[in-house]
């Protein structure tokens, strides 16, 4: 029996299978096998296969710089970008910073986003890195950079070497009163901004520090400072202390920001009090810890910490 006759016999079945393999042309059984190996098969990779590949990367590349691959995937072409954007979880969902937009999205609720700040006194710059402690080879991921313009004003940028408002590295600014007891964080909106994709409406963050070691800020959900609560990550501080035998925990300058959800919403008393920011000096010179939680974003938390610098 020749192949051709079998093929013609099977036409009806082929059609059914073709339907089963719906999607790209290249996967359907074609009864006339002309040019079965056409070019561009890869470009028409069925979206479910592409999703599967990107999901694997999302799950395996959880640290920087390996995570850049996801940004690469989102830069390949439009369809890749939309598939990648669908797969990447927000910092609130996964505790991962991926795109620059993640810097303006709230952190996770149940565990901290752990960062550190490196101060450079000479240049009046402050660099925010994603890492619980500075990596030995200085490979920690730089998230944001700030420069003190005047005593009461900071500019926040995506790059440590560009604080120009006219450029699209600009993220926002922070102003405080002379004593640093009241401050306002301004969210920068510039075009073309890499933040304009899925960002909620511009949010101004106002806050005051009635006492030297405490904050209160107002977000869309009202928050107020209650009291200093336990929950400071002693373990992590100890990692800093290992280097400095004589350092004493109590000497570590720390701030805690507590969130209290006001109003008559259905929240249990346990949920009403949440630490949303830890900020502390470490025994290492010019290195500060910054841990933030929902509803703060990295940008907001960084701005608040700057007011205490």
């Amino acid at each position: 029996m020749s192949l051709k006759s079998i093929v013609s016999e099977l036409k009806g079945i082929n059609n059914r299978i073709s339907k089963l393999c719906s999607g790209s042309k290249s996967v359907a059984i074609d009864v006339t096998p002309t040019e079965p190996f056409q070019q561009g098969q890869w470009a028409s990779l069925p979206p479910e296969l592409l999703s599967d590949i990107i999901r694997r990367l999302e799950e395996s590349e959880t640290s920087w710089p390996e995570r850049t691959v996801l940004i690469f995937c989102a830069s390949v072409c439009k369809s890749w970008r939309s598939v990648t954007k669908e797969i990447i979880k927000t910092p609130q969902q996964r505790g991962q910073i991926t795109f620059p937009i993640s810097l303006k999205l709230p952190g996770p609720r149940v565990y901290a986003m752990r960062c550190f700040i490196k101060r450079n006194k000479k240049t009046s710059t402050f660099l925010l890195y994603l890492d619980s402690v500075p990596a030995e080879n200085e490979s920690s991921k730089l998230l944001l950079a700030a420069k003190r313009i005047r005593r009461t004003k900071f500019v926040i940028s995506l790059a440590a070497d560009d604080f120009s408002r006219a450029r699209n590295k600009y993220v926002g600014k922070l102003r405080s009163n002379f004593w640093g007891t009241k401050f306002t964080v301004y969210d920068g909106h510039h075009y073309p901004s890499i933040f304009d994709e899925t960002l909620s409406p511009s949010q101004e963050l106002k806050g005051k520090r009635p006492m030297k070691d405490s904050f209160s800020v107002s977000l869309s959900e009202p928050l107020e400072r209650k009291h200093n609560a336990p929950g400071w990550d002693e373990q992590r501080l100890l990692r800093f202390l290992d280097d400095k035998e004589h350092a004493v925990v109590s000497s570590i300058k720390k701030y805690e920001l507590l969130a209290v959800l006001n109003g008559s919403r259905n929240v249990s008393p346990l949920e009403q009090e949440n630490v949303i920011l830890h900020f502390g000096k470490t025994p290492t010179k010019d290195i500060y810890i910054m841990d933030y939680y929902y509803p703060l974003s990295a940008f907001q938390a960084f701005a608040i910490c700057l007011t205490a610098m």
């Binding site: 890869w42 920087w64 989102a74 072409c77 620059p100 991921k141 699209n168 073309p192 890499i194």
Partner: peptide, 24 residues
């Protein structure tokens, strides 16, 4: 795969990529 982004989108992508390399 061919790059099908507009020049405006490209500019945005370059910023995003530049940021991924900061510190790396």
């Amino acid at each position: 795969i061919e790059n099908d982004f507009t020049p405006e989108e490209e500019a945005k992508l370059r910023e995003e990529l530049a940021w991924t390399f900061t510190g790396v």
